[in-house]
């Protein structure tokens, strides 16, 4: 391979200056907080790795709480991915191929994506209410006891359905774009070979969707792993701690209890996990691209 000339990267320096103020300085402050303790009044005391030790020890109060929130968050991400990805593919396969029907479908599907997070939360908070909400009252009318404010299962159900409502369209639109990019020749060849619908999906469509699916899974995983606003508006992390995901717990710790040191240590470990997953997906994505277009 020929040597790369990376000098063009220097052109991103102005952006770096902006990011310095919006991200780098705050992140440095978080690192500084994570090794110190404060009793307010901007006075700090050295605590070394103390907060990290406590955070990573599951038997401590902080560690147990962190592990529980992490577990809940991973279950949440796994569940929404297990629903949104197959559902998104299915929706994409069912979408019209052209004409006004396609335009209407696209607009309707894009609607949830355009609604701000806190508005999505408010919509579902009202929609799912057992007394006045259309959805909640209807479910209770069927004789099923459903109250997201008092029952952990109902709270989880609400938060998951809300996320599926909000984000399945994203996966579906990505997959639709991926499906449209498959040349007709593949389908013709399949017809000549007498391939059934499942064989076409399994051997042509799914492999061709690999790249958009990696992007979709990455976006949905990271987004759901950092989810805050929607569950916060609907359940506030409750009932009890049952829907307290990592971000919600972090905000409680930092702004509710004002434990800056503990919260800083938690955000750094949290950030490391996000960074790791991003790196793995990013590498997988760029390698898939490279495999597709081999450079001489």
């Amino acid at each position: 391979m020929k040597p790369r000339d990376d000098r063009a990267w220097l052109l991103v320096l102005p952006v770096f200056a902006v990011v310095l103020f919006s991200a780098v300085l705050p992140l440095m402050t978080v690192v500084n907080y994570s090794v110190q303790d404060s009793f307010g009044n901007n006075q700090f005391f050295w605590n070394g790795m103390g907060w990290f030790r406590e955070l990573l020890d599951p038997t401590s109060e902080l560690g147990g709480r962190f592990l529980a929130a992490l577990g809940r968050n991973l279950v949440f991400s796994a569940v929404i991915l297990a629903i949104e990805v197959p559902l998104g593919i299915l929706v994409a396969l069912c979408m019209p191929r052209g004409g006004w029907q396609l335009a209407v479908t696209m607009v309707v599907m894009a609607l949830p994506l355009l609604v701000p997070w806190n508005v999505v939360g408010t919509i579902w908070q009202v929609f799912a209410r057992a007394d006045i909400g259309l959805f909640g009252a209807a479910v209770n009318g069927l004789g099923i006891d459903y109250n997201y404010a008092g029952n952990a299962t109902a709270a989880w159900f609400t938060v998951i359905v809300m996320d599926v409502w909000h984000w399945t369209s994203l996966v579906a639109l990505l997959c639709y774009a991926g499906l449209r990019a498959i040349p007709d020749a593949y389908y013709q060849a399949a017809r000549i070979d007498g391939a059934g619908r499942w064989a076409v999906f399994r051997n042509i469509e799914l492999p061709k969707l690999k790249r958009v699916l990696v992007i979709g899974v990455l976006l949905r995983f990271i987004d759901s792993f950092m989810i805050y606003t929607e569950p916060f508006v609907v359940t506030g992390g409750g009932p009890g701690n049952s829907t307290t995901f990592l971000s919600i717990d972090l905000v409680k710790l930092a702004l509710g209890q004002f434990d800056l040191g503990k919260a800083a240590a938690m955000s750094l470990v949290y950030n490391l996990m996000t960074l790791l997953v991003c790196w793995v997906f990013f590498t997988a994505m760029t390698q898939l691209d490279a495999a597709r277009e081999p450079t001489p």
Binding site: M28, N32, N42
Partner: peptide, 15 residues
Amino acid sequence: FSWMAWTWQTAAFFA
């Protein structure tokens, strides 16, 4: 920059 609660250890790390 005192609001950033610097310590010499973290300053050395970032340097």
